[in-house]
Design a protein around this nucleic acid. Structure first.
Lengths: 218, 218
DNA sequence: TACAAACTATGATATAAATCATACTTTTGA
DNA sequence: TCAAAAGTATGATTTATATCATAGTTTGTA
């Protein structure tokens, strides 16, 4: 149960309330490529990732998709404010086998009522998330594909860390990267080649690593 | 004072606390093109627009800027979560003469402590704002310039409404629109012409109006 | 009210990246 | 374990849009 201590819910709940959560939560497993929820599904509760990695995306008419963000263990999924919409505007799809626990919306909202500190932390979380998204939008608008790809790898390194071999600890297809930076898989394939020639990155199949030198963030 | 009732702060405060706010708030006026705060300034408090219109932007090395969003009367500016950063990541520049009131950060944070309902509303606000920004990002990634311009006008119509003559109630230069949709003013100028030929919009100098027919949102 | 500064329209050219096409490689599941 | 499906590399062509250039228009202000 150690990993549970690590999420925003457990960290911000008064101890007296934890039994309520532990009683209501349901655990679920999803296989790689399965979706936890889909665009258009009714919202019934929130999910917390125990182990695994997830991409949050929106579909775009033709076969295209846009990956909005990635989620790692400890992250919360599926809460988008209350009232108005009871429908997910996004799809959450597992990048590897993933375990989550689920909390009914009633229980979650009661939890917010009882734990102002949680509400406060969530507000802070969303404010920061908004700032991140705005930063990404600026990059989308003003960087060309190669720069966006470097920024994406930097973010992925921060989010998922490195594995034993020194590569970023997540395996993504060229198409996933393309969907994240708003381009095509062909362009990602070409940029990967160029970035390797320029000694800025190294790859091994679906694994990537940033080489130490001049990694300029924005 | 009627317009004050309309902002998130006054709407969510317990009456007993209002005297504290009224005693601490400071009123300021800014002329068109003046900045309320700038990227890099130290954060000392939050601003609420009483009257006027504001653009929130980030500068991008060379002369380029990206407008992240627009703010209208009633909107709050400058709160981006707490702790960590004490520095604005964005600039807020007035599009017309604007009156704001300012609240010291200490007072604002005390207000959050005393009014859980305000914290809750703010969380909801940021969650929704995040959703909007993600939607805009999807448009940025997958629509071409003309489509992004139509979406921008739709958003502006929703945010600012129409004036007496039936035009969207905000005056923007081609450069402002370009900065908002991530393109150049030349492209906006050309798209404006095309959209008029296609009978999708009508313009009058810096005023725009969407024509009623087939306006498809996403 | 006039003049400089800011803004706009429009054409010509250059370019990043999408699209189309094909062959090759890796992964998955029956 | 092997075949089908998914993913990748790379070239050729097309396209949207940035950039460069110039002249005309509007706006703010001295």
């Amino acid at each position: 149960m150690k990993e549970l201590q690590n999420n925003i819910l457990y960290k911000n709940c008064i101890p007296q309330w934890l039994p309520v959560i532990n009683q209501s939560r349901q655990d679920h497993s999803f296989r790689k490529a399965a979706s936890i929820f889909k665009e258009g599904d009714a919202v019934r509760g929130v999910f917390f990732i125990r182990t695994g990695k997830v991409k949050i995306l929106q579909n775009w008419g033709n076969g295209k998709e846009l990956i909005l963000r990635f989620a790692n263990s400890g992250d919360m999924l599926g809460y988008r404010g209350l009232g108005k919409k009871k429908i997910y505007p996004v799809t959450a799809t597992c990048l590897e086998n993933t375990e989550v626990f689920y909390l009914n919306m009633d229980v979650f909202e009661a939890t917010l009522q009882v734990n102002p500190r949680l509400t406060y932390s969530l507000m802070d979380f969303y404010a920061n998330e908004l700032e991140e998204t705005e930063k990404r939008m600026r990059q989308m608008a003003h960087l060309e594909a190669k720069g966006r790809m470097m920024e994406a790898l930097l973010l992925l390194e921060n989010k998922f860390g490195l594995n034993g071999r020194g590569y970023i600890n997540i395996r993504l297809t060229k198409q996933d990267i393309a969907s994240y930076i708003g381009t095509t898989y062909e362009t990602v394939s070409r940029m990967t080649g160029e970035l390797q020639n320029e000694r800025l990155i190294e790859t091994n199949g679906k694994e990537f690593r940033l080489l130490p030198q001049k990694r300029k963030s924005s």
